[in-house]
Design a binder for these strands. Structure first.
Lengths: 243, 243
DNA sequence: CGTCGGGTTGATAACTTTCAAATTTCGTGG
DNA sequence: CCACGAAATTTGAAAGTTATCAACCCGACG
């Protein structure tokens, strides 16, 4: 496997310049891959087992269900992302993780990760960077929901996903494939699916983005960035910091 | 200093049972205390310097400013909390941190923390636990803003703060002192200050909580918990896991 | 061919914001 | 200890945003 088809390596490469050895270790972590079908929880709230996964292909979402019957999607994970890394330390998982599409993921035992870190210490820094970045994304998500209206919110969300996908080689400033339904967008953005639909239409009519049939097309990338106040700085991926 | 007046020790004590030696190390970390006045940023967005603090007394908030002139408060920090722990790893801080009241905080250099960890490895687990818990709180905050209406949102927020303060010995199920203004509540909860005011009145009239003159009084704690769907599980503080 | 999950649209209702203004609280200096 | 001004709280009315309800359309699929 080369760096090009190892999304985790691509992503971490945005933070540390990886050596051949380090790359090889990352490839090993991808060893025990399993396939999971959409809809069935990988990890559910209250679960005791403490394991994490690295996503190799497909999309996943992590969410919480509320007693009032609604749900809030906290984040989507794309290839190269960790699943449940945080919950390794907690007594129980505090949220659910469910595949959106059919996925391939490798289970990572805490021990394997620690071994990798002692062999290649710079990987530890890189993984911590990834965890910090995940948290920064949750924070930005919070800001998005708390202080932007529906149209800006959707724009910002679509741009963030685009930037993340581009980093792992799955998209460009022209657009990307996206398996999310309008219901999922709604649950992620704190809106109703119906309103999501309307707002997507507006964005399309404004000539900014087209979100249709599983594909996002940027009709006016710069315009959308300006409209959404999208500042990708929080993604902290301007190229390797540690060489 | 005994565990009782070291809020960090009290908090970590909810996760690991601390030995005398470990307690002593935590007391040392509180060594270099400084006083900071309210309103002046401790850490501001884009700042390069990578240092963290432990809060000894007073309240702090971390927030992001948006180009549209609004702000979103991501979280409040109370005694025993870390400030800017996450941003130590990032190139630049991605948010601002500002004292709400006059505070006392100790600067913690990455090195000191690492030294402490090698002397008392269980502290490392405890600090990571604290970091995971912080992230869990941000996630719950996201859920709160995304899927609860203003009244539940405020209720939930007030309860979470209460639980956190109780953990460090600054409150009880009867109530707690709270220096936050209605404007701050609004910026934290994605509401307008005016609406916050109305909703606080409703909660008071419902006989659930009274938020007034810097003090929160629970008029009906259980009733409020039920109304807000407050499940403190995500705070993961049911008593020491590691002994 | 009928069903089902998504997507789309219109009408109405609910919740929240914004604007304007009055009232209270609080810190500070006299 | 009181007066004063700034900050915080409170209230009303009008406007705006988003949710809810009710249909209808469409392509995939068994």
């Amino acid at each position: 496997m080369s760096a090009l088809d190892n999304p985790l390596a691509r992503k971490l490469g945005a933070f540390v310049a990886l050596s051949g050895d380090e790359m090889a270790i990352l490839d090993q972590l991808y060893g025990r891959r399993k396939i999971f079908a959409p809809g069935r929880d990988l990890i559910h709230e209250g679960q005791i087992k403490r394991s994490a996964y690295i996503l190799a292909s497909g999309w996943v979402c992590s969410y919480k269900l509320l007693p009032n019957g609604t749900r809030q999607i906290v984040d989507f994970q794309i290839p190269g992302d960790f699943l449940g890394l945080r919950s390794v330390l907690f007594r129980t998982s505090d949220h659910n993780i469910e595949p959106v599409t059919s996925i391939e993921a490798s289970e990572v035992l805490a021990k394997d990760l620690l071994d990798a870190f002692s062999t290649a210490p710079r990987l530890a820094a890189a993984v911590l960077w990834a965890a910090s970045r995940d948290e920064a994304m949750v924070v930005e998500h919070l800001v998005n929901i708390g202080r932007r209206d529906a149209k800006q919110r959707l724009s910002h969300f679509i741009l963030e996903l685009g930037a993340r996908l581009k980093l792992v080689g799955l998209g460009s400033n022209a657009g990307y494939d996206c398996p999310l339904t309008q219901y999922m967008l709604a649950d992620a953005l704190g809106l109703s699916a119906i309103h999501v639909n309307r707002v997507l239409r507006e964005l399309r009519e404004d000539g900014l983005v087209t979100f249709r049939q599983g594909a996002v097309t940027f009709d006016n990338y710069e315009g959308l960035v300006a409209y959404a106040d999208f500042d990708r700085h929080y993604l902290d991926d301007d190229g390797p910091l540690m060489r």
